[in-house]
Write a protein that binds this DNA or RNA. Structure first.
Lengths: 202, 202
DNA sequence: GCGCGTCGGTGACTTAGTCACCAAGCGCGC
DNA sequence: GCGCGCTTGGTGACTAAGTCACCGACGCGC
């Protein structure tokens, strides 16, 4: 459709599991994702990890945006959850496009705004929602079409910013209530409607 | 210095305590603050309030930015903490300036980026810092030149996204350790260095 | 000086998080 | 196909934080 996007943009391709950036890394450019998913997470000094957000095609990595706007280093970690394809736009080219291309500007702004709304939701649920509702929400959000969630209890704990033991115990309660079935590395949702109620806070 | 900034901008002036916006309000324009301070906070269904951030001159209200970028309604509450002076830039004019004025664009971007970094800090401390360290941090951040913090325990609880009773008890512990002195509506810092240690997590 | 609204203190209880440890599942090399 | 070691999950015991209910103390207006 569009011609080669610009002189400066470089193709980006990497396999699942690639660490795209770590805290204190310098930002090498703005990522326009065509395919795949990037998980951005924060790890506290105590070793607790929390997933801040995921970047999908059409989305924007706020971390990257922040780094480019303020000339700072990254403060979180970004990992390719799946194989990635896209473009890496170097800082100067990014700046030029923001000035010259209203569509590009609108895309970036909208994505930043959207990301911010997610963030607000995260703050709200960290500050006031129960583990039960946050876990129910995370399960619903990350289930595949068959209702399976392929995550360890540890990974689920990172999704909701809690601890593994807490997740294990809450999952055990869900299992006793026949809302889910548990197996190693997998949670199967049995009662989606009931979980939605829990996610909404009963 | 600059001539009247634009055809569209309207002067903004209001006294302390004014509610600038509430959840579900439509955004009437972009605020450029010349003087004063706006507190933006979220109140959960359970009635728990948490202060998201404060807007100072040169800063940007992310809420407003989000609303303008996505054409959405506000999701938080904004209150004038002090008397405000500034300009209100209507949406169309805001859009025009973003396109035409690189300095304006840079200002907005930098401010948004900065705000986002604060937000990340908020998420990190909600997810993993103790009440003791969050309260110590809040006290240090909001003390005046004499080391007085003129906030009720309730207001301090909103600052750190916790409950009044929890704040009262932690303040009592600080008082027993001679780190602060308590009186009605005021906390006086007695040992700033020790509080800084607590804020950093010992 | 009385009444009332705000502010702060406290006990009793629930929920969440931490720590230490163990057991089951699984892949791998031999 | 046996044993080894890593990952994952389960559990008890404890601490920290949050909730609920209630009361007392202060401060202001009448």
């Amino acid at each position: 459709m569009t011609p080669p996007l610009s002189s400066g943009a470089r193709p980006l391709a990497c396999p699942a599991g690639t660490v795209l950036f770590r805290p204190d890394d310098v930002c090498s450019g703005f990522v326009m994702l065509a395919e795949g998913c990037i998980r951005v997470s924060l790890t506290s000094p105590g070793g607790r990890e929390i997933v801040l957000y995921r970047v999908h095609p059409g989305g924007v990595c706020l971390q990257t945006f922040t780094c480019l706007a303020e000339g700072r280093v990254y403060s979180a970690e970004g990992i390719a959850e799946t194989e990635l394809k896209g473009e890496l736009i170097p800082p100067a080219e990014y700046e030029r496009r923001l000035a010259a291309d209203p569509d590009f500007r609108r895309t970036v702004f909208t994505a930043v705004a959207h990301r911010f709304a997610d963030f607000e939701h995260l703050v709200e649920s960290l500050a006031s929602a129960s583990i039960e509702s946050r876990l129910a929400e995370a399960l619903l959000a990350r289930a595949d079409a068959r209702g399976d969630v392929h995550l360890t209890h540890d990974a689920l704990a990172a999704e909701i910013g809690s601890a593994r033991e807490v997740v294990s115990r809450q999952l055990a309660r869900f299992e006793r209530a026949r809302l889910v079935a548990l197996s190693r590395g997998k949670v199967t949702l049995l009662a989606v409607a009931a979980l939605k109620q829990k996610a909404a806070g009963q």
